[in-house]
Amino acid sequence: MSWFRITLHRSAIGLPERTRGVLAALGLRRRSQTVFHPVSQDFAGMIMKVKELVRVQEVDAPKTDAEVKAERQFAPGFWVEKRGKEVMARRGGGGRDMN
């Protein structure tokens, strides 16, 4: 089963109530928001109604909001090799509690 990955790209401000209702039914409340819906005739019809406002991809599995957000995050530029707390514990537990 495949899914539509739908992202609201253009705002519906000033567009007819019907159009905004379709966005609400798709669960799109703000720009750049992404939702996943199964590929079906119902959702295809809704996408056709707002095709000028959204970007659509077909994907194999839906993602959670956290996973969608993780796609947008940059690499932090550093990585933790060892935690200070563990190092101090190995030295004999004499040090201050570093977190």
């Binding site: 790209h9 005739q41 295809a44 996408i47 056709m48 095709k51 000028e52 970007r55 659509v56 077909e58």
Partner: peptide, 13 residues
């Protein structure tokens, strides 16, 4: 972009 959306929906269905 609109053509792309229509093509994607068509291919998926």
């Amino acid at each position: 972009a609109v053509d792309d959306v229509v093509a994607t929906v068509d291919a998926a269905l």
